[in-house]
C-alpha cells in the first residue's frame, strides 16, 4: 500500500528532474497568482485578466521573431505589450465613449491574431503550440529563476499595496478623499497582473496563463469570507491543482499544462457544489437562523 502510494505520488518527482522543475515552477506560480486572482475577482476584473493574458502574446511573439524561443526576449516583449495594453485600454476607456471592457476586448482580439500571425511567420506549429499552451515540463534554470523572482516580487508588492488596494476596491471615493493613492495603486496592481501573466505564460502558455489565477480564487471565494483566508485558500488550492495535475499528466499521458488547469477546474466545480457558499451544501445543509 505504501509502495503503491509512493509510486503514485512521490516516485514521478523523485525519478525525473523535469517533473521536479515543473513542480517547483507550477507551485511558485500558484502561490503568486493567488492574491492577483483574488483581487481581480473582487474588483470584477476577471475578464480583464483573461484579456491581458492574450494581450502579452504579440510582445512575446516579437521577442520570438527577434531571438527565437529565448526567455529574456519573450519576457521583455510580453511585459512591454502587457503594460501597453493595460495603459492603452484604460486611456481609450477614459478618452472615448467605449467602456474599459470593450476597449480590452478589442485590444485582446487584435493582439491574439497578431501574435499568432507573427509566430507563424517564422516558426513551426510546434513553436506556436509552445507559445499558446506553454512548456511546463521543459522549464530550464532561467525560466525557474524568472518564475521564482516574479513570485517573490509579487508577494512583496502585495505587502506594500495591500491596504490602499483594499480601500480602493471597497470605496475609491473615500481613498481619493484621504490620499492620492488610487491611481498609483491601480497601476502597480496592473503591473503585478502583467508580471504574473508573463511568468505563467512560459509554463502554461498565453491561452491558459490566467487559469491558475482565476480558478483557485473563485474556488476560495466559495469556502471563506475573510480576505486574507481567501488568498491563503486560493494559494493552497492552486498548489494542489499543480501537484495533482502534474501527477495526472504523468500517469495518464495528458498534456501537463491543460491537466493542471483541468484539475483547478475540477476543484472549482467541487467547490461550487460543496463549498460553504456553494450551490448544494451552502443552501441545503445550512438552514437560516432565527430572526
Amino acid at each position: 500500500m505504501v509502495d503503491l502510494l509512493h509510486a503514485a505520488l512521490i516516485q514521478p518527482f523523485a525519478e525525473f528532474e523535469f517533473m521536479r522543475r515543473a513542480l517547483v515552477g507550477a507551485v511558485a506560480l500558484a502561490i503568486a497568482a493567488a492574491p492577483v486572482g483574488v483581487f481581480l475577482m473582487l474588483r470584477r476584473m476577471s475578464l480583464t485578466g483573461d484579456a491581458m493574458s492574450h494581450a502579452i502574446l504579440p510582445g512575446a511573439a516579437i521577442g520570438y521573431l527577434a531571438a527565437g524561443l529565448s526567455l529574456p526576449a519573450m519576457t521583455i516583449g510580453g511585459l512591454v505589450a502587457g503594460i501597453a495594453v493595460a495603459v492603452g485600454a484604460g486611456a481609450v476607456a477614459r478618452a472615448s465613449v467605449l467602456g474599459e471592457d470593450v476597449a480590452l476586448a478589442a485590444f485582446y482580439l487584435v493582439s491574439l491574431a497578431l501574435g499568432v500571425t507573427i509566430v507563424s511567420m517564422k516558426g513551426s506549429n510546434v513553436d506556436l503550440l509552445h507559445v499558446l499552451f506553454g512548456t511546463v515540463l521543459a522549464l530550464d534554470d532561467q525560466a525557474l529563476f524568472l518564475i521564482a523572482g516574479i513570485a517573490t516580487a509579487t508577494l512583496f508588492g502585495f505587502a506594500v499595496i495591500f491596504r490602499p488596494l483594499v480601500a480602493e476596491s471597497v470605496d475609491p471615493v473615500f481613498l481619493a478623499s484621504v490620499a492620492r493613492a488610487g491611481a498609483p495603486v491601480h497601476l502597480v496592481f496592473m503591473g503585478l497582473v502583467v508580471m504574473n501573466l508573463v511568468g505563467a505564460f512560459h509554463a502554461l502558455g498565453t491561452l491558459m496563463a490566467v487559469g491558475l489565477m482565476m480558478l483557485p480564487a473563485a474556488s476560495a471565494r466559495l469556502w471563506v469570507d475573510d480576505l486574507s483566508a481567501m488568498i491563503g485558500v486560493a494559494a493552497g488550492g492552486g498548489a494542489l491543482a499543480a501537484i495533482v495535475g502534474l501527477l495526472a499528466s504523468y500517469h495518464f499521458g495528458l498534456p501537463a499544462g491543460p491537466a493542471i488547469i483541468l484539475t483547478a477546474g475540477l476543484v472549482y466545480v467541487l467547490s461550487l457544489a460543496f463549498g460553504r457558499r456553494g450551490l448544494l451544501v451552502g443552501r441545503l445543509m445550512r438552514p437560516h437562523l432565527e430572526a
Binding site: 473582487l42 483594499v166 476596491s169 471597497v170 470605496d171 475609491p172 471615493v173 469570507d225 480576505l227 481567501m230
Partner: peptide, 13 residues
C-alpha cells in the same frame, strides 16, 4: 459608490 460585496468587516471598514 461603495462596493458592498467586498469581503471587509465593519471594524476594518
Amino acid at each position: 459608490e461603495i462596493d458592498r460585496s467586498f469581503p471587509i468587516s465593519i471594524f476594518d471598514f
